[in-house]
Design a protein around this nucleic acid. Structure first.
Lengths: 342, 342
DNA sequence: TTGTATGCGTTATCAC
DNA sequence: GTGATAACGCATACAA
């Protein structure tokens, strides 16, 4: 904020009308005569006037802001989701506030508090606390406090004890698509690497994975399901452990694409031919199309996901009915890494 | 904003003090007795009070917001820069508003207008109009209008006729590092692909590239410098054209990493051995460490870059002296793609 | 230390 | 169609 702030009073004076009238043209009130509207607009241009959004928010009791908390925008999974939300929200006149939590609880708390303070009209939450299979009581309580003040949408997660809108990828189905695909390709020995026990997205995948193996009459081999984490290095670590085993699988699924990037890296490091395995990721983030071999993976239908998010946001803000739980179907993207071998 | 908004007046009543006193504890004014401060805080907790940021902004005439316009947050180059800025700004109590312009001028205008309206205290600008070698007069004029109201920092760009703070990567030096490295590796036939004529970052690189070749007594071959764009597909396209040539280079530099990802892809598509060439990118975005072969490239020193951005933001807002033009040195990251061949 | 009065820049409610 | 006037929720100058 600079020097002399010019306000609707200044415009009013210049245009020989009341501040009210100026306000009316600002709000596109049709009750104002065309000629005076023109005059006012002219003066606004002349004086380089821009309405103060803080003042507007104060009186209208709405900020047109929505808050978006996610773990890490440098992860393409999140940026691909975020950018679509931003675009669509913008079309509806909403400004989105992005905050990275780095999956850290204090960060989440700080951001939540700020959002409440700034009176965002809806919060979109991804990652962190809403991805724990067993939710932490303190975190639950905090969420409940927040939800009393501002509506929230949880994306790809939920919290027991927090009744709130959820929009989730159908991860179970994603896993089914993968297993079916691998079996079609003739695989009987499948590994699942990465993720972390207690993180719901990992638990769900492991559970479904087991179910699917059983359904198809395949054995689940404990040693081939290796937790490690969700990042590239975690993928390397898991792959390293896997390669130490006596017998090896022929196909390797990752908790996400990142993990597989790491696995590929580890193979190269150890001079293990990439072709020994079929690799499949999860998320279909953009590098999966450019790594070598390009990665077969599960796509989240980002457009649908983000459009659902924004649609829910809008309905919530406008107090229209909203589906509490929305599931987004995934699709299998087949690339080089899972082509039939030998 | 929900039901009955509770305000400092409600707290005041509950605590039997004046609203002023409540305001004082909100602003950490030390003049308030410890016991009453405690009482007030207690009541605030009891009533679940959160100060209204819009109201605060209005009276204090500061919003603690900074605006950040960049082309596309899904591009790791930008997200890697952005996230560091967000983190550091947050430590200083600033909220950053992120806006994607998709390099589109109208988008930039819309965002600029919104920033002015929301009274952000500083704008950080990347990409789009500030990367044109010849700046558009209308865009210049708009920028001047904006700058009159809110200070701006241009990152990796500038505009003739707009006197404003600039923080730029030393791209010339980056190119020099690359050429030297390639020559050390014994290369005499070097190509530069991607980018777009008229975009300053491309023009600068091409110019420096020519200078460096000459300096080292190598010929600049017109056919080996191929414009196409900055994305993966543009890289493919350029590589395709290159492969149609009679004689081929032994080393290929890209305008950025993305372009090289595309080039690698095209080679595979055409069954051209990757090993025929040394590849070098620019930016060191994260997939460069996981593509195959991992990509030698130029790193922007993201920590230094972002810390400089935030430092400048802070100085500008606090009206301390600021260096108008800051240059950030790059560093060469050597990976597999440029190891000596044959 | 604490309280009163006023301003911040809009919008909304009336009345004219 | 237009104009006073009162909110909106907080901070600050000035008093006490």
């Amino acid at each position: 904020m600079n020097k002399k702030n010019i306000t609707i009073y200044d415009i009013a004076k210049e245009a020989n009308v009341s501040p009210t009238t100026v306000s009316r043209v600002l709000t596109n009130n049709p009750l104002v005569k065309e000629s005076t509207r023109k005059l006012v607009l002219e003066k606004m241009k002349e004086l380089d006037f821009t309405p103060n959004e803080a003042a507007r928010s104060l009186t209208r009791k709405q900020t047109n802001m929505i808050g978006f908390i996610l773990p890490d925008i440098t992860n393409p999974f999140f940026s691909q989701t975020y950018i679509e939300v931003e675009r669509r929200a913008h079309e509806l006149g909403y400004t989105v506030l992005l905050r990275n939590s780095m999956n850290r609880r204090e960060m989440e708390s700080v951001h939540l508090r700020e959002f409440v303070q700034r009176r965002v009209e809806c919060i979109v939450f991804m990652g962190g606390r809403i991805n724990k299979t067993e939710s932490n009581p303190q975190e639950v309580e905090e969420m409940l406090e927040v939800i009393k003040r501002v509506p929230m949408i949880m994306v790809n997660g939920q919290m027991d004890g927090v009744n709130c809108n959820c929009i989730c990828t159908n991860e179970e189905d994603g896993i089914r698509l993968i297993v079916s695909h691998l079996i079609e390709q003739g695989h009987k020995h499948i590994s699942l690497i990465g993720g972390e026990k207690g993180i719901s997205t990992a638990d769900v995948k492991v559970r479904t994975f087991k179910e699917e193996l059983e359904k198809h009459g395949l054995d689940f081999k404990e040693d081939w399901q290796i937790y490690s984490g969700f990042n590239i290095d975690d993928g390397r670590e898991a792959m390293k452990k896997l390669l130490e085993q006596q017998t090896l699988p022929t196909a390797i699924m990752g908790m996400n694409d990142m993990v597989i990037y790491g696995a590929l890296k580890e193979c190269r490091e150890q001079n293990v031919p990439i072709n020994n395995f079929s690799f499949i990721g999860f998320d279909d983030i953009f590098p999966s199309d450019i790594v070598y071999p390009s990665l077969t993976t599960i796509n989240h239908n980002y457009e649908i996901l983000s459009s659902q998010i924004v649609k829910s946001v809008q309905n919530i803000i406008e107090k229209k009915p909203v589906e509490k739980n929305i599931t987004i179907d995934t699709k299998l993207i087949i690339r080089e890494s899972s082509q039939a071998k030998r």
